[in-house]
Design a protein around this nucleic acid. Structure first.
Lengths: 148, 148
DNA sequence: TATTGTTATACTCTATAACTATA
DNA sequence: TATAGTTATAGAGTATAACAATA
């Protein structure tokens, strides 16, 4: 049996054909987020955490982003220089360094998301209505897949 | 309107909710491919091109992988040291350097894919049959989305 | 004494420019 | 003279180890 004829009745067969399509779409979406401004992927990703989950400690950001604390110090320093984040010492514990997304940072991030959404919107608009309906129902399934 | 209440009847609304789910799933699939052996993402990606499209010139690999020729020289050199690719001069034009995936390289790549498929298989198996059916029908739609 | 974050230093990976060889 | 690939060198970016500040 050729891989393109994979039996998608089984979870394994479905995984095998779903994975490359998801990876490929994600790769193309990722390609356009980078190089937008002088921001690298890690900086954009750290900003996304701040937007989604609110203010964070340097150490917590490092854990979430899977980098070491010194690297996160550098990432945040670059964002601070551009005015996209602000830092303040935690009044309750001055060892902690709280990082906040500024309004300018929020705007940059939202503009970036809009750009990627627009690219995907154009492609989705070219699909048949039936195909769009399939994607529409796939969203909550992917959500459950990501949570599980 | 809150973003979670996005109107998915429109292509834009659908793009907005589909994108983060695709990105998130891809990120988790990517996380496990790296650090598998001593291979970095670019090396694995170059090997995948060789597996999918057959022997390639250094220059063509550089174009496809969007790196500069000197970088591809390095990437291929690392793979050659491990015995995962072989190089030979093109008999018709000795300036060209043809790169071939070895059997060992092919095995490493297939094992890597299996590993990622297994991770996804476990998650898919936990879904309801109805959810799996939605995903099954989403695969060809994603395929069309990637082609368009 | 333990913890948070920073600085110092080394390593990895990439790109540009200069070079070798082939055509 | 032009082209494919390599070597030399510099520039980002990360990690480990050592350090400063705070608890």
């Amino acid at each position: 049996m050729r891989s393109t004829d994979e039996n998608t009745r089984t979870a394994a067969g479905l995984a095998h054909v779903l994975r490359p399509q998801v990876m490929r779409l994600a790769r193309r979406l990722r390609q356009m987020q980078d190089h937008t401004l002088g921001l690298n992927p890690n900086q954009l990703s750290a900003m996304a955490v701040l937007l989604n989950s609110g203010d964070q400690l340097i150490g917590d950001l490092a854990v979430v982003e899977q980098v070491r604390p010194p690297s996160m110090t550098r990432i945040i320093h670059g964002l601070e220089m551009r005015g996209y984040v602000a830092r303040r010492s935690d009044p309750a514990d001055h060892r902690h360094c709280l990082v906040t997304l500024t309004e300018a940072g929020r705007q940059v991030l939202l503009a970036n998301r809009r750009r990627r959404d627009e690219w995907l919107t154009i492609r989705i608009a070219k699909l048949d209505p039936a195909d769009r309906d399939v994607l529409r129902r796939a969203v909550p399934v992917l959500e459950r897949l990501n949570q599980g």
